[in-house]
Protein backbone atom coordinates (compact mmCIF):
# COMPACT_ATOMS: atom_id res chain seq x y z
CA UNK A 1 0.00 0.00 0.00
CA UNK A 2 1.38 3.33 -0.96
CA UNK A 3 -1.31 5.90 -0.41
CA UNK A 4 -1.39 6.20 3.41
CA UNK A 5 -1.25 9.96 3.26
CA UNK A 6 -3.00 10.60 -0.02
CA UNK A 7 -5.83 13.11 0.33
CA UNK A 8 -8.35 10.53 -0.83
CA UNK A 9 -7.73 8.41 2.28
CA UNK A 10 -10.36 9.19 4.91
CA UNK A 11 -8.51 7.23 7.52
CA UNK A 12 -4.95 6.00 7.43
CA UNK A 13 -2.42 4.51 9.81
CA UNK A 14 1.33 4.37 9.75
CA UNK A 15 3.40 2.01 11.91
CA UNK A 16 0.42 1.53 14.22
CA UNK A 17 1.45 -0.75 17.09
CA UNK A 18 -0.27 -1.87 20.23
CA UNK A 19 1.57 -3.68 23.01
CA UNK A 20 0.25 -5.73 25.88
CA UNK A 21 2.83 -6.56 28.54
CA UNK A 22 5.44 -5.37 26.03
CA UNK A 23 4.37 -8.00 23.51
CA UNK A 24 2.91 -6.59 20.29
CA UNK A 25 -0.76 -7.48 19.88
CA UNK A 26 -0.58 -6.22 16.31
CA UNK A 27 1.62 -4.07 14.17
CA UNK A 28 3.53 -2.20 13.06
CA UNK A 29 0.62 -1.80 10.69
CA UNK A 30 0.07 0.48 7.69
CA UNK A 31 -3.30 0.85 6.08
CA UNK A 32 -5.48 3.35 4.29
CA UNK A 33 -9.25 3.55 4.09
CA UNK A 34 -10.48 5.66 1.17
CA UNK A 35 -13.91 7.09 0.58
CA UNK A 36 -16.14 4.57 -1.12
CA UNK A 37 -14.08 1.64 0.06
CA UNK A 38 -14.46 -1.34 2.37
CA UNK A 39 -11.48 -2.86 4.15
CA UNK A 40 -11.89 -6.34 5.54
CA UNK A 41 -9.72 -7.01 8.58
CA UNK A 42 -8.96 -10.72 8.71
CA UNK A 43 -7.26 -12.80 11.31
CA UNK A 44 -7.69 -15.77 13.63
CA UNK A 45 -9.03 -15.51 17.14
CA UNK A 46 -6.62 -13.48 19.25
CA UNK A 47 -4.93 -11.85 16.29
CA UNK A 48 -5.93 -8.40 17.53
CA UNK A 49 -8.83 -7.46 15.25
CA UNK A 50 -11.00 -6.07 18.04
CA UNK A 51 -7.97 -4.41 19.64
CA UNK A 52 -7.20 -2.73 16.32
CA UNK A 53 -10.77 -1.43 16.14
CA UNK A 54 -10.58 -0.13 19.69
CA UNK A 55 -7.28 1.61 18.99
CA UNK A 56 -8.59 3.22 15.80
CA UNK A 57 -11.73 4.43 17.49
CA UNK A 58 -9.76 5.83 20.43
CA UNK A 59 -10.74 3.56 23.29
CA UNK A 60 -7.21 2.21 23.53
CA UNK A 61 -3.98 4.12 23.37
CA UNK A 62 -1.63 3.09 20.54
CA UNK A 63 1.90 2.53 21.79
CA UNK A 64 3.50 3.59 18.54
CA UNK A 65 2.49 4.96 15.17
CA UNK A 66 0.11 7.61 13.96
CA UNK A 67 -3.45 7.70 12.69
CA UNK A 68 -4.45 10.18 10.01
CA UNK A 69 -7.88 11.56 9.28
CA UNK A 70 -8.24 13.25 5.87
CA UNK A 71 -4.45 13.21 5.61
CA UNK A 72 -3.85 15.13 8.83
CA UNK A 73 -2.84 13.55 12.14
CA UNK A 74 -6.03 12.52 13.84
CA UNK A 75 -7.44 14.85 16.49
CA UNK A 76 -9.69 12.81 18.76
CA UNK A 77 -11.99 15.68 19.62
CA UNK A 78 -12.70 16.40 15.96
CA UNK A 79 -12.83 12.76 14.91
CA UNK A 80 -15.41 11.46 17.37
CA UNK A 81 -18.48 12.45 15.40
CA UNK A 82 -16.99 11.03 12.19
CA UNK A 83 -16.44 7.50 13.50
CA UNK A 84 -19.14 4.99 14.26
CA UNK A 85 -18.14 1.91 16.20
CA UNK A 86 -20.28 -1.21 16.33
CA UNK A 87 -18.66 -3.44 18.93
CA UNK A 88 -19.19 -6.95 20.20
CA UNK A 89 -21.05 -5.42 23.14
CA UNK A 90 -23.81 -3.69 21.26
CA UNK A 91 -24.34 -0.81 23.66
CA UNK A 92 -28.04 -1.48 24.03
CA UNK A 93 -29.85 -1.03 27.31
CA UNK A 94 -31.76 -4.24 27.98
CA UNK A 95 -34.52 -2.46 29.91
CA UNK A 96 -35.26 -0.02 27.10
CA UNK A 97 -36.98 -0.64 23.80
CA UNK A 98 -35.13 -0.51 20.45
CA UNK A 99 -36.77 2.84 19.77
CA UNK A 100 -35.64 4.32 23.09
CA UNK A 101 -32.15 2.98 22.50
CA UNK A 102 -32.04 4.62 19.09
CA UNK A 103 -33.17 7.95 20.51
CA UNK A 104 -30.20 7.90 22.89
CA UNK A 105 -27.81 7.19 20.00
CA UNK A 106 -29.34 10.07 18.02
CA UNK A 107 -29.06 12.37 21.01
CA UNK A 108 -25.35 11.62 21.26
CA UNK A 109 -24.30 11.22 17.66
CA UNK A 110 -26.90 13.21 15.73
CA UNK A 111 -29.30 12.05 13.04
CA UNK A 112 -29.30 11.97 9.24
CA UNK A 113 -31.94 13.98 7.44
CA UNK A 114 -35.03 12.38 5.98
CA UNK A 115 -35.09 9.30 8.15
CA UNK A 116 -36.78 8.63 11.46
CA UNK A 117 -35.98 5.98 14.06
CA UNK A 118 -39.20 4.18 13.19
CA UNK A 119 -38.23 3.97 9.52
CA UNK A 120 -34.77 2.73 10.48
CA UNK A 121 -36.24 -0.02 12.64
CA UNK A 122 -38.56 -0.93 9.78
CA UNK A 123 -35.61 -1.19 7.41
CA UNK A 124 -33.72 -3.57 9.69
CA UNK A 125 -36.84 -5.71 10.01
CA UNK A 126 -37.90 -4.90 13.55
CA UNK A 127 -41.37 -3.57 12.79
CA UNK A 128 -43.67 -4.66 15.56
CA UNK A 129 -40.81 -4.83 18.06
CA UNK A 130 -40.27 -1.07 18.44
CA UNK A 131 -41.64 -0.99 21.97
CA UNK A 132 -40.51 -4.37 23.28
CA UNK A 133 -37.74 -4.23 25.89
CA UNK A 134 -34.47 -5.27 24.24
CA UNK A 135 -33.99 -8.02 26.82
CA UNK A 136 -36.91 -9.90 25.26
CA UNK A 137 -35.43 -9.89 21.76
CA UNK A 138 -33.34 -12.70 20.30
CA UNK A 139 -29.60 -12.27 19.78
CA UNK A 140 -30.15 -11.61 16.07
CA UNK A 141 -32.86 -9.06 16.76
CA UNK A 142 -30.61 -7.28 19.24
CA UNK A 143 -27.95 -7.12 16.55
CA UNK A 144 -30.48 -5.70 14.11
CA UNK A 145 -31.57 -3.00 16.53
CA UNK A 146 -27.91 -2.01 16.93
CA UNK A 147 -27.56 -2.01 13.13
CA UNK A 148 -30.37 0.53 12.91
CA UNK A 149 -27.86 3.02 14.34
CA UNK A 150 -25.91 2.76 11.10
CA UNK A 151 -28.89 4.10 9.18
CA UNK A 152 -29.46 7.05 11.46
CA UNK A 153 -26.12 8.33 12.64
CA UNK A 154 -24.36 10.62 10.14
CA UNK A 155 -20.80 9.31 10.69
CA UNK A 156 -18.89 8.63 7.46
CA UNK A 157 -16.41 6.06 8.76
CA UNK A 158 -17.90 2.81 10.03
CA UNK A 159 -15.91 0.45 12.19
CA UNK A 160 -17.86 -2.79 12.37
CA UNK A 161 -16.55 -5.52 14.64
CA UNK A 162 -17.98 -8.89 13.51
CA UNK A 163 -21.17 -7.38 12.07
CA UNK A 164 -22.32 -10.73 10.68
CA UNK A 165 -22.24 -12.60 13.99
CA UNK A 166 -25.61 -13.88 15.24
CA UNK A 167 -27.41 -12.97 12.01
CA UNK A 168 -29.46 -15.19 9.72
CA UNK A 169 -29.10 -15.21 5.93
CA UNK A 170 -31.48 -12.31 5.57
CA UNK A 171 -29.62 -10.34 8.24
CA UNK A 172 -26.33 -10.93 6.46
CA UNK A 173 -27.88 -9.58 3.27
CA UNK A 174 -29.10 -6.59 5.26
CA UNK A 175 -25.59 -5.78 6.54
CA UNK A 176 -24.25 -6.07 3.00
CA UNK A 177 -26.96 -3.74 1.73
CA UNK A 178 -26.22 -1.20 4.43
CA UNK A 179 -22.50 -1.27 3.71
CA UNK A 180 -22.97 -1.04 -0.04
CA UNK A 181 -25.26 1.93 0.27
CA UNK A 182 -22.95 3.68 2.71
CA UNK A 183 -19.97 3.16 0.44
CA UNK A 184 -21.92 4.30 -2.61
CA UNK A 185 -22.69 7.54 -0.77
CA UNK A 186 -18.98 8.20 -0.29
CA UNK A 187 -18.55 6.66 3.15
CA UNK A 188 -16.04 4.02 4.13
CA UNK A 189 -16.16 0.95 6.33
CA UNK A 190 -13.72 -1.26 8.14
CA UNK A 191 -15.10 -4.69 8.86
CA UNK A 192 -13.56 -7.49 10.90
CA UNK A 193 -14.09 -11.15 10.25
CA UNK A 194 -12.47 -14.20 11.72
CA UNK A 195 -11.23 -17.02 9.60
CA UNK A 196 -12.46 -18.70 6.50
CA UNK A 197 -15.91 -17.44 5.60
CA UNK A 198 -16.72 -13.86 4.94
CA UNK A 199 -20.19 -12.81 4.01
CA UNK A 200 -19.08 -9.51 2.60
CA UNK A 201 -20.17 -8.90 -1.01
CA UNK A 202 -17.76 -7.92 -3.76
CA UNK A 203 -14.00 -7.80 -3.48
CA UNK A 204 -13.06 -5.72 -0.45
CA UNK A 205 -9.47 -4.77 0.22
CA UNK A 206 -8.02 -7.13 2.82
CA UNK A 207 -5.91 -6.38 5.85
CA UNK A 208 -4.49 -9.56 7.32
CA UNK A 209 -3.53 -9.71 11.00
CA UNK A 210 -1.48 -12.63 12.23
CA UNK A 211 -1.32 -13.76 15.82
Amino acid sequence: MTAENSPSALLAARDLTFLRQDEPVFGPLDFALRAGEVVLVEGDNGSGKTTLMRVVVGLLHADEGTLYLDGAPLDRDLARGRLLFLAHHLGLKADLSPLENLRIAIGLYGCREAITPQQALHTVGLQGYEHEPVRQLSAGQKKRSALARLLLVPADIWLLDEPFANLDREGIALVNRLIERHVAEGGAAMVTSHGAVTFLHGEPRRLRLSA
Binding site: L59, G81, L83, A87, G91, L92, Y109
Partner: peptide, 19 residues
Protein backbone atom coordinates in the same frame (compact mmCIF):
# COMPACT_ATOMS: atom_id res chain seq x y z
CA UNK B 1 -19.59 -1.12 31.06
CA UNK B 2 -20.99 -4.61 30.71
CA UNK B 3 -23.42 -3.91 27.87
CA UNK B 4 -21.09 -1.60 25.95
CA UNK B 5 -23.09 1.60 26.33
CA UNK B 6 -20.24 3.18 28.28
CA UNK B 7 -18.07 2.82 25.17
CA UNK B 8 -20.74 4.53 23.11
CA UNK B 9 -20.77 7.33 25.66
CA UNK B 10 -16.97 7.66 25.62
CA UNK B 11 -16.93 7.80 21.82
CA UNK B 12 -19.65 10.44 21.57
CA UNK B 13 -18.56 13.77 20.08
CA UNK B 14 -19.58 15.72 23.19
CA UNK B 15 -17.18 16.31 26.12
CA UNK B 16 -17.20 13.14 28.21
CA UNK B 17 -17.05 15.09 31.48
CA UNK B 18 -20.37 16.75 30.74
CA UNK B 19 -22.10 13.48 29.87
Amino acid sequence: LEDGSLEQLMLAPQPLALL
